[in-house]
Computed example of a mutant assay.
Amino acid sequence: MADPTPWIAADDSGAVRKHAPATARNREAIAAVLAEVLPATGAVLEIASGSGEHCAFFAERFPALRWQPSDPEPSALASIASWCAGLGNVAPPLAIDASAADWPVARADALLCVNMVHISPWEATLGLLDGAVRVLPAGGPLILYGPYLRAEVETAPSNAAFDASLKARDPRWGLLDVAEVSEAAAARGLRFERLVEMPANNLILVYRR
């Protein structure tokens, strides 16, 4: 069964600390891949941190890294701050729109983005790729997690239904094809490194600056 729709600002209940049920199910699997691709030390910029649950979990799992969460939504920023309160290796969350031409971060050793590209316009993904080129050092990883389409792999019925529901919510949203993302990344000098199959028909894509 696919993960439920992630927490979206439009569905906000008003509580300061948000909860995306999928995070508790996928965080261990994501952390296992992060252990292989993240640098041992340095700064990790997370784009579209959402509720902040992933950032809090990963910051505890990888204490030698400095974590910089971000999100464009004010209510998400408050939730991130709540989840990450007391964690000495997490900086205060920043308001960052992935599609913006300039981010308030000059450099990061790794860039992580979980469950954003399918619930945002294509311009946000292009902005994410452009931002990775700006902030990452040579060899720095861009790590994307979420559901994707692949021409050579039949789309799971749950992902097809999810894609339809996203497009009904906003026609600019929907699952992207791995080849399309990789082509846009390559055009910006980002080298595709690996694709990792994840639970619930999700993928991790890793690119290197």
Rank of each mutant, 00 (worst) to 15 (best):
75 S>P: 00
58 F>T: 09
74 P>I: 01
79 S>M: 11
63 P>H: 01
66 R>H: 08
90 V>M: 00
60 E>P: 02
97 D>V: 05
73 E>V: 00
98 A>I: 07
93 P>Y: 09
65 L>M: 07
85 A>D: 11
91 A>Y: 00
76 A>C: 14
77 L>G: 01
64 A>R: 14
62 F>A: 11
65 L>I: 11
84 C>Y: 02
84 C>F: 01
59 A>Q: 06
76 A>M: 13
72 P>E: 13
67 W>E: 10
59 A>W: 03
81 A>H: 11
96 I>Y: 05
90 V>A: 00
88 G>E: 14
64 A>E: 14
75 S>Q: 05
78 A>D: 06
62 F>D: 14
93 P>E: 10
92 P>H: 15
97 D>N: 13
80 I>S: 03
94 L>H: 09
63 P>M: 04
65 L>K: 06
72 P>V: 06
61 R>P: 08
57 F>S: 13
83 W>R: 14
95 A>M: 01
97 D>L: 04
73 E>H: 15
60 E>Y: 01
89 N>C: 08
90 V>T: 00
94 L>N: 10
62 F>V: 14
76 A>P: 07
84 C>M: 03
59 A>S: 06
93 P>T: 09
77 L>E: 00
98 A>V: 06
75 S>K: 02
66 R>E: 11
65 L>S: 08
70 S>I: 02
76 A>D: 11
72 P>L: 11
74 P>Y: 01
86 G>C: 05
98 A>E: 14
71 D>T: 02
88 G>A: 14
71 D>S: 12
82 S>Y: 02
74 P>C: 03
86 G>Y: 05
77 L>I: 02
84 C>A: 07
81 A>G: 13
66 R>N: 09
58 F>W: 15
75 S>F: 01
60 E>F: 00
79 S>Q: 11
87 L>I: 13
86 G>T: 04
95 A>R: 05
60 E>D: 12
79 S>E: 07
98 A>H: 12
96 I>F: 05
84 C>Q: 02
67 W>I: 10
64 A>W: 07
71 D>F: 09
64 A>L: 15
85 A>C: 02
68 Q>K: 07
82 S>W: 11
96 I>N: 08
89 N>P: 04
92 P>F: 15
57 F>H: 15
68 Q>F: 01
82 S>A: 15
88 G>T: 11
85 A>G: 12
61 R>N: 06
77 L>R: 13
68 Q>D: 03
65 L>N: 08
84 C>G: 03
70 S>T: 08
77 L>P: 00
99 S>Q: 15
76 A>W: 07
87 L>V: 03
79 S>L: 12
57 F>V: 11
70 S>E: 06
70 S>C: 04
82 S>D: 13
